[in-house]
Design a protein around this nucleic acid. Structure first.
Length: 481
DNA sequence: TGAAATGTTGGGGCG
DNA sequence: ACGCCCCAACATTTC
């Protein structure tokens, strides 16, 4: 083991001190450490983080910087292409060891490999680690040594290795940093916050940072025994709400597994939640092995699918003005909170891709910009799964009916009333389908269809039948050579 | 992590 | 008492 005077710890999406193997390795192998954050959205190509993600990043970095300062270390902030900025910082600081935790997006994998090569040429030791996943994408293979394309066997195979997970390490108490006079930007210099203040609703709902992540985990731990049932109810707080914290690495899946004892998950609820973390693993597995799927369908039969191009329908969907209350409620929750309940995500996505026949990438782009938990692996899997063109995809004939789904999963109508105040006083019987409500009830509720709330932008039955017909055609033309 | 159409069953009203 | 019909409830099939 080499002992170094100074190690540079390159922080990326591992914005935590506990269970951070890159940080721990640097502390164990160098007298001093230098934590560095480089803002380099250009490195991520066409999938540079969106506005909501940047909002989160600003606050997460702020929280991390203050944690570091408490333990005696500053954090250097720079911006620019990491391939030039990082070696430059190494030269300035005199560090001889660089550590980081790995990421798995195609553009970042390529960039990190190039950086590793460049640093090695300058005799700098580089050590990368796993902080983000239970199982890195290349560690799980099927019987023929190929990556999985179906979730269930993937997760079954992963679970056979679950007992070999390393235990999460506690946060270091004290960090000895360098006294070098190195230039640093402030976090505010990165201009991650919006100019116009659309972020108030987001700020109310979330607490970015490692402490906030653990508070959320503790909240969830109390309710986790109801997860199997409550997770499907957008009107309840039945889901973990850990996704943005996980995305930025404020908490890691090993820590969640340990805290909730998910290895030994015997209850239905805990096993179900563990499986959701499994889907996150599966998404990373797929993105790593099929990197083109960020922009292209995994199922090649969909390459020539004729998607609709209506700008006005896309806009209606984005604004939560489709005339279907559950879809609109979800889209407005997204705009307000930077987050949408997962069941409603599926329903809104099914509506866009199947009823409106708009390209899943349009939906993926909108989610990418508006979600605080936007994650390329999960977003890609989610949209391709819904559109039916991905791995383990929802079969083409699985088309959600937003009215039936609303009656099933928002039985009290509380979710609709929360997000669509203009419908709030319409009686339960009609609030999920206001266009069928009797005129006198509408006027008593102060609703003028087409004015205070839109009429449906499309007919559910007709659009469903059209989609099914088109899928049949695709199926037949691919079956016959 | 579906919806709708179609098929089956069984209780009750009724002649 | 019996067969017939209706229809809700549930199951199965199809897309």
């Amino acid at each position: 083991m080499t002992s170094h005077r100074l190690a540079l710890v390159w922080l990326r999406r591992d914005l935590r001190l506990a269970d951070n193997p890159a940080l721990a390795y640097a502390l164990a192998n160098a007298g001093q450490i230098l934590p560095v954050f480089i803002h380099s959205p250009q490195d991520e190509g066409t999938w540079a983080p969106g506005a909501a993600s940047n909002w989160w990043l600003h606050h997460s970095l702020t929280a991390l910087e203050s944690q570091l300062l408490d333990r005696g270390s500053r954090m250097i902030v720079r911006r620019g292409a990491a391939l030039s900025v990082l070696p430059q910082l190494v030269r300035e600081s005199g560090a001889t060891l660089v550590t980081w935790n790995r990421l798995y997006e195609p553009a970042i994998v390529a960039r990190d490999a190039a950086i590793k090569t460049r640093l090695a040429q300058n005799d700098i030791d580089v050590e990368s680690h796993n902080a983000a996943l239970l199982f890195e994408p290349w560690t799980i293979r099927n019987g023929q040594q190929l990556p999985y394309r179906v979730f269930t066997p993937f997760w079954r195979s992963a679970l056979t290795q679950i007992d070999r997970l390393p235990a999460p390490q506690p946060a270091p108490r004290r960090l000895a940093t360098t006294s070098n006079k190195l230039d640093s930007l402030t976090i505010a210099d990165l201009a991650l916050l919006p100019d116009i203040h659309w972020d108030e609703g987001i700020a109310q709902h979330w607490e970015p940072g490692e402490a906030g992540a653990h508070r959320q985990l503790e909240r969830f731990a109390k309710a986790a025994s109801d997860y199997a049932h409550a997770r499907d109810r957008p009107d309840l707080t039945g889901t973990s709400s850990l996704s943005p914290h996980l995305h930025f690495g404020e908490i890691g899946p090993r820590q969640i597994f340990a805290r909730l004892h998910l290895q030994a998950a015997s209850s239905n609820s805990l096993a179900t939640y563990a499986k959701e973390l499994g889907w996150r693993e599966f998404a990373h597995h797929l993105l790593f092995h099929f990197p083109h799927t960020t922009d292209k369908p995994l199922d090649t039969r969909f390459e020539h699918w004729q998607w609709g191009r209506s700008k006005s329908l896309l806009r209606a969907w984005q604004r939560g003005m489709t005339g279907y209350p559950l879809v609109d409620a979800g889209m407005r929750e997204l705009w307000h909170r930077g987050w949408m309940h997962n069941r409603v995500r599926m329903i809104a996505a099914s509506f866009l891709t199947k009823n409106l026949q708009i390209h899943w990438l349009q939906g993926a782009r909108w989610f990418w910009d508006t979600l605080v938990d936007a994650d390329l692996a999960s977003n890609t899997l989610g949209w391709q799964w819904t559109a039916g063109c991905g791995a383990d995809a929802a079969p083409y004939y699985r088309i959600f009916n937003p009215v039936l789904q609303a009656e099933k999963f928002d039985p009290q109508r509380a979710y609709i009333r929360q997000w669509l105040p203009e419908l709030a006083t319409l009686p339960d019987k009609w609030i999920h389908r206001p266009w069928e409500a009797p005129d006198d009830l509408l006027s008593r509720a102060g609703i003028v269809l087409g004015k205070t709330y839109p009429r449906p932008v499309i007919d559910l039955r007709q659009s469903r039948d059209d989609a099914l017909t088109a899928y049949q055609v695709m199926k037949q033309s691919s079956d016959s050579p």
